[in-house]
């Protein structure tokens, strides 16, 4: 990996840790972005982590662009030697896979899809060599996911599957983006998952839907009262498959202001993950059960 920097006009500097996506690149991008935020370098106004890169916005009236670049280069060298540990949290997200709402939506946009005769899940199962839709869903829910970026629109998390590359689910995006996606759809495009925080256009394959809101501009939902967005880059997500009955029950709890997502603090070690992904994942998921 070789860090690359480039100015985005006179107010941004773009820092790329790697051209390709990996948990290592994402971890490095997040760690360095955090270090930049903590550095107190004058003139920096925003730091935005992305999958394998991050963006710094700055005020060139306060710090000269070349001076900022020099500061970032030395921070990059300093953090390269730091132990890859992340203090974060794991969040359980109940998902109603193969639900009627995303199914109704995907049927309306079949002519924009690679396989008009199949559903998104059937297509994803086939091209990833799963024997059935259920087997794909089991794989999707089996391992935790790393929130590699939050954005596109308000509060939308991108998710990286925490398994060896060979086991990652990969699908193309729709041939032409849909003009509609139900709010809280769980989608997948390329190697990345996402949750649509708002209803709107989208190009990711649709796998299911969660009853748990993740963005609330009115801040009326109990667990979004302090801040309107649930996810932060670096959060870890565990999907738990649910059926229609539990979906309705959780939706009712949310409406009544009683629903509280299951969230536990965890320390994620990149080295431990590489040494034994299954054991590292089991430990992370165990934290949700108080282990």
């Amino acid at each position: 990996m070789m860090t690359r920097m480039s100015f985005g006009g006179d107010e941004h500097i773009f820092v790329e840790l790697d051209e390709e996506m990996s948990l290592d690149a994402c971890f490095r991008a997040l760690s360095l972005a955090r270090a930049v935020r903590a550095s107190g370098i004058k003139g920096i106004t925003e730091v935005c982590p992305a999958n394998a890169s991050f963006l710094v916005r700055f005020d060139p009236d306060v710090i000269a662009p070349d001076d900022l670049r020099a500061e970032l280069v030395s921070l990059d060298q300093a953090t390269e030697r730091a132990e890859p540990l992340l203090n974060t949290r794991i969040i359980e997200v109940p998902v109603f896979y193969n639900d009627p709402w995303t199914r109704e939506t995907l049927m309306r946009f079949r002519e924009r899809h690679q396989a008009p005769d199949m559903t998104d899940l059937e297509y994803a199962a086939q091209i990833n060599n799963y024997a059935s839709v259920d087997a794909l869903i089991a794989a999707h829910a089996a391992s935790p996911w790393f929130v590699s970026m939050v954005g596109f629109v308000a509060g939308l998390p991108w998710l990286y599957q925490m398994v060896e590359r060979a086991k990652q689910i990969e699908v193309p995006k729709y041939l032409r983006p849909r003009t509609d996606t139900p709010r809280l759809t769980v989608g997948h495009g390329g190697c990345l998952g996402c949750m649509y925080s708002v209803r709107g256009a989208g190009g990711y394959q649709m796998f299911g839907i969660t009853p748990m809101p993740i963005y609330d501009p009115a801040q009326s939902i109990s667990y979004l009262r302090d801040f309107m967005i649930l996810f932060n880059p670096g959060d870890i997500v565990r999907f738990r498959p649910i059926g229609r009955e539990e979906y309705d029950a959780i939706a009712a709890e949310v409406a009544a202001g009683r629903f509280v997502p299951r969230i536990s603090p965890v320390v994620f070690s990149l080295d431990a993950f590489h040494a034994d992904p299954a054991a590292s994942n089991a430990k992370l998921v165990g934290a949700l059960n108080g282990h």
Binding site: G8, F14, E16, L55, M149, G151
Partner: peptide
Amino acid sequence: FGAGSDPSNIVDSCYP
């Protein structure tokens, strides 16, 4: 890896 197949694709990044 992760960028997508079109030559105009990159691994999703932040847009200035």
